[in-house]
Protein backbone atom coordinates (compact mmCIF):
# COMPACT_ATOMS: atom_id res chain seq x y z
CA UNK A 1 0.00 0.00 0.00
CA UNK A 2 1.21 3.48 -0.84
CA UNK A 3 2.42 5.63 2.00
CA UNK A 4 2.04 9.38 2.27
CA UNK A 5 4.38 11.42 4.46
CA UNK A 6 4.31 15.11 5.21
CA UNK A 7 7.68 16.68 5.87
CA UNK A 8 9.40 20.03 5.54
CA UNK A 9 13.17 20.16 5.29
CA UNK A 10 13.71 23.75 4.11
CA UNK A 11 17.38 24.32 3.33
CA UNK A 12 18.49 21.08 5.01
CA UNK A 13 19.32 19.35 1.75
CA UNK A 14 21.42 16.50 3.12
CA UNK A 15 18.83 15.74 5.83
CA UNK A 16 16.26 15.33 3.06
CA UNK A 17 18.64 12.99 1.18
CA UNK A 18 19.24 10.88 4.26
CA UNK A 19 15.52 10.61 4.97
CA UNK A 20 14.72 9.52 1.38
CA UNK A 21 17.56 6.98 1.54
CA UNK A 22 16.19 5.64 4.84
CA UNK A 23 12.71 5.32 3.30
CA UNK A 24 14.20 3.40 0.33
CA UNK A 25 16.21 1.19 2.69
CA UNK A 26 12.93 0.41 4.45
CA UNK A 27 11.29 -0.56 1.15
CA UNK A 28 9.60 2.65 0.01
CA UNK A 29 10.20 4.35 -3.32
CA UNK A 30 9.23 7.95 -3.98
CA UNK A 31 6.56 8.33 -6.66
CA UNK A 32 5.17 11.85 -6.16
CA UNK A 33 5.96 15.11 -4.41
CA UNK A 34 3.92 18.16 -3.56
CA UNK A 35 4.60 21.16 -1.35
CA UNK A 36 4.79 19.14 1.88
CA UNK A 37 3.82 15.74 0.60
CA UNK A 38 6.04 12.80 -0.32
CA UNK A 39 4.19 9.77 -1.64
CA UNK A 40 5.89 6.37 -1.69
CA UNK A 41 5.08 2.96 -3.10
CA UNK A 42 6.43 -0.30 -1.72
CA UNK A 43 9.63 -1.53 -3.40
CA UNK A 44 12.44 -3.97 -2.81
CA UNK A 45 14.39 -2.81 0.25
CA UNK A 46 17.45 -0.70 -0.59
CA UNK A 47 16.84 -0.79 -4.33
CA UNK A 48 17.02 2.98 -4.81
CA UNK A 49 19.20 5.85 -3.65
CA UNK A 50 18.52 9.57 -3.65
CA UNK A 51 20.39 12.81 -4.12
CA UNK A 52 18.88 16.25 -3.75
CA UNK A 53 20.24 18.93 -6.09
CA UNK A 54 19.76 22.66 -5.60
CA UNK A 55 18.74 24.24 -8.92
CA UNK A 56 17.25 27.52 -7.61
CA UNK A 57 20.02 29.54 -9.27
CA UNK A 58 19.13 28.20 -12.73
CA UNK A 59 16.59 29.68 -15.11
CA UNK A 60 13.47 27.59 -15.79
CA UNK A 61 14.81 26.48 -19.18
CA UNK A 62 18.21 25.51 -17.76
CA UNK A 63 16.68 23.63 -14.83
CA UNK A 64 14.37 21.72 -17.21
CA UNK A 65 17.32 20.97 -19.53
CA UNK A 66 19.33 19.65 -16.57
CA UNK A 67 16.40 17.50 -15.42
CA UNK A 68 16.05 16.06 -18.94
CA UNK A 69 19.77 15.32 -19.09
CA UNK A 70 19.51 13.40 -15.80
CA UNK A 71 16.52 11.46 -17.11
CA UNK A 72 18.52 10.58 -20.23
CA UNK A 73 21.23 9.26 -17.90
CA UNK A 74 18.68 6.82 -16.49
CA UNK A 75 17.70 8.66 -13.32
CA UNK A 76 14.19 9.54 -12.20
CA UNK A 77 13.80 13.18 -11.17
CA UNK A 78 11.25 15.15 -9.17
CA UNK A 79 11.13 18.89 -8.73
CA UNK A 80 10.58 20.09 -5.16
CA UNK A 81 10.14 23.41 -3.38
CA UNK A 82 12.73 24.53 -0.84
CA UNK A 83 10.53 27.09 0.95
CA UNK A 84 6.91 27.26 1.93
CA UNK A 85 5.33 30.02 -0.11
CA UNK A 86 1.59 30.20 -0.15
CA UNK A 87 1.35 33.45 -2.07
CA UNK A 88 0.03 33.59 -5.59
CA UNK A 89 1.65 35.71 -8.26
CA UNK A 90 4.67 36.50 -6.17
CA UNK A 91 8.02 37.55 -7.61
CA UNK A 92 11.27 36.70 -5.90
CA UNK A 93 14.51 38.52 -6.55
CA UNK A 94 17.58 36.28 -6.54
CA UNK A 95 20.73 38.35 -6.92
CA UNK A 96 22.82 35.17 -6.49
CA UNK A 97 21.25 33.38 -9.44
CA UNK A 98 22.54 33.06 -12.98
CA UNK A 99 21.20 35.57 -15.55
CA UNK A 100 17.76 34.41 -16.62
CA UNK A 101 16.90 33.01 -13.20
CA UNK A 102 17.24 36.20 -11.25
CA UNK A 103 13.63 37.17 -11.04
CA UNK A 104 11.84 34.01 -10.07
CA UNK A 105 8.15 34.19 -10.85
CA UNK A 106 5.53 31.47 -10.54
CA UNK A 107 6.40 30.24 -14.02
CA UNK A 108 10.15 29.98 -13.37
CA UNK A 109 12.04 27.88 -10.81
CA UNK A 110 9.98 29.49 -8.03
CA UNK A 111 8.74 26.55 -5.94
CA UNK A 112 10.95 24.19 -7.97
CA UNK A 113 14.31 24.93 -6.37
CA UNK A 114 15.25 21.33 -5.68
CA UNK A 115 15.64 18.31 -7.88
CA UNK A 116 15.27 14.95 -6.19
CA UNK A 117 17.31 12.48 -8.23
CA UNK A 118 16.67 8.75 -7.90
CA UNK A 119 19.07 6.05 -8.99
CA UNK A 120 18.62 2.30 -8.99
CA UNK A 121 21.43 0.82 -6.89
CA UNK A 122 24.12 -0.90 -8.96
CA UNK A 123 26.79 -1.19 -6.30
CA UNK A 124 28.60 1.91 -7.50
CA UNK A 125 28.84 5.21 -5.65
CA UNK A 126 26.12 7.74 -6.41
CA UNK A 127 27.71 11.18 -6.61
CA UNK A 128 26.39 14.04 -8.71
CA UNK A 129 29.57 16.10 -8.50
CA UNK A 130 32.93 14.41 -8.79
CA UNK A 131 35.66 16.94 -9.64
CA UNK A 132 36.88 19.49 -7.11
CA UNK A 133 36.23 22.33 -9.54
CA UNK A 134 32.61 21.29 -9.99
CA UNK A 135 32.16 20.62 -6.26
CA UNK A 136 33.46 24.14 -5.57
CA UNK A 137 31.05 25.68 -8.09
CA UNK A 138 28.12 23.75 -6.65
CA UNK A 139 29.10 24.65 -3.09
CA UNK A 140 29.15 28.34 -4.09
CA UNK A 141 25.64 27.96 -5.50
CA UNK A 142 24.48 26.49 -2.20
CA UNK A 143 26.20 29.26 -0.26
CA UNK A 144 24.65 32.04 -2.39
CA UNK A 145 21.17 32.15 -0.83
CA UNK A 146 22.59 31.95 2.72
CA UNK A 147 25.01 34.79 1.99
CA UNK A 148 22.21 36.90 0.53
CA UNK A 149 19.88 36.16 3.47
CA UNK A 150 22.68 36.95 5.93
CA UNK A 151 23.51 40.30 4.32
CA UNK A 152 19.85 41.33 4.08
CA UNK A 153 19.01 40.33 7.65
CA UNK A 154 22.13 41.98 9.11
CA UNK A 155 21.38 45.21 7.22
CA UNK A 156 17.71 45.22 8.23
CA UNK A 157 18.60 44.26 11.80
CA UNK A 158 20.89 47.27 12.07
CA UNK A 159 18.60 49.72 10.26
CA UNK A 160 15.38 48.64 12.01
CA UNK A 161 17.10 47.71 15.29
CA UNK A 162 15.02 44.57 15.30
CA UNK A 163 15.81 41.35 17.19
CA UNK A 164 13.76 39.29 14.73
CA UNK A 165 16.18 40.13 11.94
CA UNK A 166 19.13 39.53 14.25
CA UNK A 167 17.88 36.00 14.92
CA UNK A 168 17.48 35.41 11.20
CA UNK A 169 21.01 36.78 10.68
CA UNK A 170 22.34 34.28 13.24
CA UNK A 171 20.51 31.39 11.54
CA UNK A 172 21.73 32.37 8.09
CA UNK A 173 25.27 32.85 9.44
CA UNK A 174 25.23 29.19 10.51
CA UNK A 175 24.29 28.05 7.00
CA UNK A 176 26.85 30.42 5.53
CA UNK A 177 29.64 29.16 7.81
CA UNK A 178 28.90 25.50 7.07
CA UNK A 179 29.22 26.05 3.31
CA UNK A 180 32.20 28.38 3.76
CA UNK A 181 34.05 25.70 5.71
CA UNK A 182 33.20 23.10 3.07
CA UNK A 183 34.40 25.49 0.36
CA UNK A 184 37.74 26.10 2.11
CA UNK A 185 38.25 22.35 2.48
CA UNK A 186 37.51 21.76 -1.22
CA UNK A 187 39.78 24.61 -2.33
CA UNK A 188 42.64 23.15 -0.31
CA UNK A 189 42.15 19.73 -1.90
CA UNK A 190 41.84 21.29 -5.37
CA UNK A 191 45.30 22.86 -5.09
CA UNK A 192 47.02 19.65 -6.10
CA UNK A 193 44.28 17.35 -7.30
CA UNK A 194 41.61 17.52 -9.94
CA UNK A 195 39.24 14.92 -8.44
Amino acid sequence: MNRKCYRFFGGLISAQERWLDRMAAGGYRLIRTEKLLYEFEPCEKGKYRYRVEFVGQKSRTNAADYARFLEDCGYRVYFKNINLNWNVGKLVLRPWAEPGGRVAANRSTFGRELLIVEKECDGRPFEMHTTFEDKINYCKQLRGPWLYLFLVSVSLGIVLRSWGWAVLAAISATGLLIYQAELSKLRKQAKTKEW
Partner: peptide, 28 residues
Amino acid sequence: KHGYAVMQFIEERTGGRLRLGAGTLYGA
Protein backbone atom coordinates in the same frame (compact mmCIF):
# COMPACT_ATOMS: atom_id res chain seq x y z
CA LYS B 1 27.46 10.06 -28.16
CA HIS B 2 24.76 11.16 -25.77
CA GLY B 3 25.59 12.17 -22.19
CA TYR B 4 25.17 8.77 -20.58
CA ALA B 5 27.30 7.12 -23.28
CA VAL B 6 30.07 9.66 -22.56
CA MET B 7 29.91 8.63 -18.89
CA GLN B 8 30.14 4.93 -19.82
CA PHE B 9 32.94 5.52 -22.35
CA ILE B 10 35.11 7.21 -19.73
CA GLU B 11 34.43 4.56 -17.11
CA GLU B 12 35.25 1.74 -19.55
CA ARG B 13 38.39 3.39 -20.91
CA THR B 14 39.80 4.05 -17.44
CA GLY B 15 38.79 0.63 -16.08
CA GLY B 16 36.50 2.31 -13.56
CA ARG B 17 39.23 4.61 -12.23
CA LEU B 18 37.43 7.73 -13.43
CA ARG B 19 33.69 7.92 -12.80
CA LEU B 20 31.95 11.18 -13.55
CA GLY B 21 28.96 12.43 -11.62
CA ALA B 22 26.06 13.44 -13.85
CA GLY B 23 26.17 17.01 -12.52
CA THR B 24 29.86 17.35 -13.31
CA LEU B 25 29.40 15.87 -16.78
CA TYR B 26 26.46 18.16 -17.55
CA GLY B 27 28.50 21.27 -16.63
CA ALA B 28 31.53 20.09 -18.61
